[in-house]
Design a protein around this nucleic acid. Structure first.
Length: 321
DNA sequence: ATGGACACCTGTGGGC
DNA sequence: TGCCCACAGGTGTCCA
């Protein structure tokens, strides 16, 4: 579910509370939420307990918290021979329905909580991090940090990472994820050229997290509506000017959505305080099947596409050539 | 390289 | 009220 704006809303909520916080204890209520952790639940708990979080970083829809090393680290069960001499991070992905809530100790239970991590923050206050996930497509895992391919920062952390040893590192399991369009090191020319060389539909290209990250079904449909493109328009028929327009549009839509805390159309997306975002009122295509296109009045359509749905205006967004 | 199908899951809302 | 089906912000892998 959550795409870049929702994940960034979560990141910016977690960062001030968890930077410098120490993990006191962990409760695993459903081990399926740790399926991407290689060592299993016991390894997860023993390697995190007592550990201090150094920051909260995001690239695309992936979040991670670099962790302080400590003397005698034996490493988690990462398969690295001779134990782990490399730094690591707690990596989270929200999947389709994940939430990361921050609660006061003893706050009423949140339904569908899968993992609880109890912290003492940098000011000495106790707080609970609750990983809530209806569908369990999201996950928490410990992963090693590796250098980024371009030697530039691993992801966005509001400048917190600048000058740290972990600034230019990224979790190995997220290292195939491309930079997102809001990343200052996003290589605009290269990515647009690559996109325009693809022999595939433009929507598939926009959703390709290895090409550019952070865009999911909502923001892909919104971008295509804004740029009047049909979702199956071949990427390699799109001219340079149009490609620039797509990128400008993506950036505008994503940053507007970030500014209002993301899109919440049901209970599946909340910020760290359990509050909804307000971008739904700005949607023009996604979830609007059966209503009038706000540009031309034609009825918005939803079509089955790639095991999900595509929402578009059949008049404004015609397949060309 | 591309895309389709499928696996991983639970919950909700609409239609009858 | 209940039952069944459609549908849901994602990712990864396997196979043509």
């Amino acid at each position: 579910m959550p795409e870049l704006p929702e994940v960034e809303t979560v990141r910016s909520g977690l960062a001030p509370a968890l930077t410098g916080a120490t993990i006191d204890s962990i409760e695993i209520l459903d081990a399926r939420s740790l399926k991407r952790h290689q060592g299993g639940p016991i390894d997860f708990v023993s390697n995190l307990t007592g550990r201090r979080v150094l920051g909260v970083v995001r690239r695309g829809k992936f979040l991670w918290m670099p962790l302080e090393s400590r003397p005698g680290d034996q490493g988690f069960d990462s398969g690295i021979p001779g134990g782990n001499a490399r730094p690591f991070a707690l990596v989270g992905h929200l999947g389709m329905s994940g939430q990361m809530l921050l609660r006061d100790p003893g706050a009423p239970d949140d339904k569908l909580t899968r993992v609880v991590i109890k912290f003492t923050d940098a000011a000495g206050e106790k707080l609970e991090f609750r990983f809530v996930d209806q569908r369990i497509f999201g996950s928490l895992a410990i992963d090693v940090l590796v250098p980024t391919a371009d030697g530039k920062p691993g992801g966005f952390s509001a400048g917190v990472a600048a000058g740290t040893w972990w600034e230019n590192l990224i979790p190995e399991t997220a290292s195939h994820i491309a930079r997102d369009p809001l990343d200052p090191d996003f290589d605009e020319k290269r990515i647009l050229a690559k996109m325009r060389g693809k022999n595939t539909g433009i929507k598939r290209a926009l959703l390709d997290q290895g090409l550019l990250s952070g865009i999911g079904n909502i923001y892909a449909d919104e971008t295509l509506w804004a740029t009047k493109l049909h979702y199956e328009q071949p990427a390699n028929t799109i001219g340079a000017a149009k490609a620039n327009e797509i990128l400008a549009s993506v950036r505008q839509i994503l940053s507007r959505a970030v500014a209002v805390g993301g899109t919440s159309f049901d209970d599946q997306y909340k910020n760290v305080n359990g509050e909804s975002g307000y971008f739904e009122i700005s949607l023009n295509a996604y979830g609007r099947a059966g209503t009038e296109c706000s540009r031309c009045g034609t009825t918005i359509v939803r079509e089955d596409w790639a095991n999900r749905g595509s929402h578009f205006c059949p008049k404004c967004q015609r397949l060309k050539r």
